[in-house]
Amino acid sequence: MEEDIEEASADADVDALADTAIDDDVDAADAAEDADIEDDEDDADFDEEEGGRERTAQADAMWNDVRIEPVEIALLKGVGFTLRAYRLNTELTPTEVDEEEDDFAILDRRPAHDEDDERVVILENAELFEDEPEPAAVEASSTRSRKKPAKKDDADSDEAAESDELDEAADLDEDADKADDEDAEAEADAQDEDEEEEEEEAEPEEVPAFLSHRGKLLLFRSAEGLVEFVKSDAEHDLTQLDTWESLRKRITASAVVPTEENHYELDLVVENLRGGQDAWDTDLLLAAGEAARDLAYALRLEPVRTALAPGSPLDDLDEGLRAAAAGGMGGFFAKRRLKKIGAQQAALGWRTIIGKISAAVDWRD
């Protein structure tokens, strides 16, 4: 009997120890879970502080399907969202740009009445304005006629023959001029045909298109404002895309998360350039050049396109930054070339570019 009691007591002690171990495991699991939650919250706070949100796989799939991307652009007036797509130039119709008033149009204005020069003016005492004959010329003519009366016929015949020769030479020259003109016209026509054939044979190229209207970039201060506009029936340049209707149905505010390469901080470019070559941010400046070129093409900002055209000082700056970032001997020589580019000149050029882009922005809430 005593042995049974001892065995029961031992079993109870073992059960108690097992329960304690289980409780300890549960507490440890709860603590780990709480720690993970806190870490997630810290990561979320970090992402929010950095101004970025992670894009979901579902959002990635949607943007890839429609071949359109959200873009975030920072300008001096604030930060805004818009959309950009790349398509072949044969698939897009360029945006319509309102023609600006010509400040020098007044110089080209003509008088209201073109017939002013042909007006008939009645003068009083018209005889005062009549031309009088020149007596000297008349007298000289009569003198010559008196001096050579006998040779008049011979002179007339010589003059007639000489006149006929001159007329014949003039006719030959005129025929030669006509032949030259015809050859020139034929050559010009052939050149025009060659240019047309080259244009027809030119391969289509991929070009950018933005959410814009009549040469104005639509920039939204919130993702919700962008989504509301996309779902509306408002007119803009992206309605011509074949995937636009699909985007209208699927877009949500949570999906408007631009990727890292679609963030453009144009508001920092001038300040960075003024800091000198040693302070230049290569990624910042190259990204700004990409955005400015795309916007200049899509919005038809010809001054910006000219400022960033191949061979321009700002394009040389971009090429130098790329080569310097690549390293090697090319990067070494590129750094030397960059030192010859004036920081103030580059900053002034970019300030003008950003001013042109800012003037072409239609801010929306």
Results as ranks from 00 to 15, higher is better:
E2P: 07
A8P: 00
D13F: 06
A18W: 02
D24H: 06
D24I: 06
D30N: 12
D34V: 01
D36N: 07
D40A: 14
E41S: 05
E48L: 02
T56A: 10
M62G: 07
N64V: 00
P70C: 06
V71M: 04
V71C: 02
L76P: 07
L76I: 07
K77R: 15
V79D: 10
G80S: 08
T93V: 14
R110E: 15
E115N: 14
E118Y: 08
I122S: 08
L123N: 10
E130P: 00
S145F: 03
K147S: 12
K147N: 12
K151D: 14
D156T: 14
D156M: 14
E159F: 09
E162L: 08
E162Q: 12
S163K: 13
D173W: 01
D173T: 06
D175Y: 03
D177Y: 11
D177H: 10
A186N: 13
E187L: 14
D192K: 13
E196P: 03
E199N: 07
E199D: 15
E200Q: 10
E200I: 09
E201L: 14
A202L: 07
A202S: 13
E203V: 04
E205D: 10
A223R: 12
A223D: 11
F229A: 11
K231S: 05
E235D: 10
T239N: 13
Q240P: 03
I251Q: 00
A255G: 11
E260P: 00
D267E: 10
V269D: 10
E271A: 15
R274Q: 14
Q277L: 14
G289F: 00
D294F: 02
T306R: 13
L308H: 09
P313S: 04
L314F: 03
L317A: 04
K335Y: 00
I341L: 15
A346H: 03
L348F: 06
I353G: 05
I354Q: 08
G355A: 12
K356Y: 15
I357G: 04
